[in-house]
Amino acid sequence: MKKILLVEDDEDNRDLVSFVLQRSNLSVELVIAENGKEAVQKAVDDRPNLILMDMQMPVMDGWTAVPILKGDDRTKAIPIIAFTSQAKLEDKARTIEIGCVEHYAKPMDPEELLTLIRKYVHE
């Protein structure tokens, strides 16, 4: 079973992503991290197939965590989708610059999010 690491500090957002994935027919396991620091550790431990990374978080934000993950041989191959409410064009360019494969702006649309996830998680 494929694994998706969701890095998100907002509980409602976590619940919503979980809700959408449960109803997606995707056979995936959702691993949760509440900040960037936790995400780095879980990425090493769980080796997910995809990371959904919120960029604004306490303890360690996505802007810090993504370069760490991309600099680690064990995790650098894992595709990371920036999952953020920052919708400006420069934000999008910056997330790609630090190593994210996609930039997905909140608020989410379930079908759109699933299409994006399916692109990186092949069953």
Binding site: D12, F19, R23, K106, P107, M108, D109, P110, E111
Partner: peptide
């Protein structure tokens, strides 16, 4: 039940109507 759950998190969704449509498909 799913509709109620989604509506309670409406602020996190781009569009309630498209989410409802997705749920109807699901």
């Amino acid at each position: 039940t799913a509709v109620k759950e989604v509506l309670s998190k409406r602020r996190l969704l781009r569009s309630s109507s498209s989410t409802m449509e997705w749920l109807r498909k699901v």
